Simulated assay, not measured.
Amino acid sequence: MREDIEHTRDDMARYPSLAGRAVLVSGGATGIGASFVEQFARQGARVAFLDIDDVGAQALLASLQDVAHAPVYLHTDATDVAALQASIAQARTQIGPIGVLVNNAANDVRHDFSQTTPEDFERSIAVNLRHQYFATQAVVEDMRGLGGGSVICLGSTSWMIKNAGYPMYTMAKSAVHGLVNGLARELGRDRIRINALVPGWVITEKQRRLWLDAEGQAQIERAQCLPGYLQSEDLARMALFLGADDSRMCTGQQFIVDGGWV
């Protein structure tokens, strides 16, 4: 399959409203999350990111020494709500009141429905859904004080196209849409936007290593309307729009970035 055409940074949009804005990204050390961190930082935002992958985080920080505001990394297990809340409070002291929250942390580990235990279920909900709820709760007062803000919740097309092999993950990701719709009106009164950013099959290094084979390549060619692999940067570019003032009247929506698969 033909790889996507490379674009230079100068080819892409600049969002003046993001300069100096405090942005918090969960699961930001590698993959899609790392692209969120990089792209917001290159817009001049003050970025903090949470993860448990210290090695990945340090590699990302080393690659971003040329940005205006060096991102802040906080080692955090997003499934531990108390630790999550404490890290958000710490991020606030280092980058200021949070104006953009990107709820990205997730784990799409494959699992056997017939072998699922209650403990497995609780772990999956914790990593794929629960932290999105409580991280949003933790930044709302910041956004009210700022006169508005943007919450970006990562969904997935996996449940829409009825993928098999990870039912707990698809269930949690479908619930993200309920969370967005359930909070849009309540938060909107304070000019806080909340939207779902919904990826298709993004070919990260992890996806290449674990799941992208000849059959998967053929499936992409058959199902996507656009040729080429969906990249992390494609998601990050949409996140920039949703975080910037350009999307000031967008809330309670799902923004699908999947090459036209769904």
Score class of each variant (00 low, 15 high):
residue 16 P to L: 12
residue 17 S to V: 12
residue 18 L to M: 13
residue 27 G to S: 05
residue 28 G to V: 05
residue 30 T to R: 09
residue 36 F to Q: 03
residue 40 F to N: 03
residue 40 F to I: 05
residue 42 R to C: 04
residue 43 Q to K: 03
residue 45 A to P: 05
residue 46 R to Y: 03
residue 48 A to C: 11
residue 49 F to A: 09
residue 49 F to N: 05
residue 52 I to K: 11
residue 55 V to T: 13
residue 56 G to M: 15
residue 57 A to M: 12
residue 60 L to G: 06
residue 66 D to L: 07
residue 70 A to M: 09
residue 71 P to W: 03
residue 75 H to G: 10
residue 78 A to F: 01
residue 79 T to Q: 12
residue 81 V to K: 07
residue 83 A to R: 14
residue 84 L to I: 07
residue 85 Q to K: 15
residue 85 Q to V: 14
residue 86 A to F: 09
residue 86 A to H: 07
residue 90 Q to W: 11
residue 90 Q to Y: 11
residue 95 I to C: 11
residue 96 G to D: 15
residue 97 P to G: 14
residue 99 G to R: 08
residue 101 L to V: 14
residue 103 N to R: 14
residue 105 A to N: 08
residue 106 A to S: 15
residue 106 A to L: 09
residue 109 V to S: 11
residue 110 R to G: 08
residue 111 H to L: 07
residue 123 R to K: 06
residue 129 L to S: 03
residue 133 Y to A: 05
residue 137 Q to M: 03
residue 139 V to M: 13
residue 147 G to H: 10
residue 147 G to F: 14
residue 147 G to C: 15
residue 150 S to Q: 07
residue 151 V to P: 01
residue 171 M to R: 00
residue 172 A to P: 00
residue 175 A to P: 00
residue 175 A to C: 03
residue 186 E to S: 07
residue 191 R to W: 10
residue 192 I to L: 08
residue 192 I to K: 00
residue 194 I to Q: 04
residue 195 N to Y: 08
residue 195 N to E: 13
residue 196 A to T: 06
residue 198 V to N: 12
residue 198 V to K: 01
residue 198 V to T: 15
residue 200 G to N: 15
residue 201 W to P: 08
residue 202 V to F: 13
residue 206 K to E: 14
residue 212 L to W: 14
residue 217 Q to N: 10
residue 219 Q to Y: 12
residue 220 I to Y: 01
residue 224 Q to Y: 11
residue 225 C to K: 09
residue 225 C to A: 14
residue 229 Y to R: 03
residue 233 E to I: 09
residue 241 F to Q: 09
residue 243 G to Q: 07
residue 244 A to Q: 00
residue 245 D to V: 03
residue 248 R to K: 10
residue 249 M to S: 09
residue 252 G to Q: 03
residue 255 F to W: 14
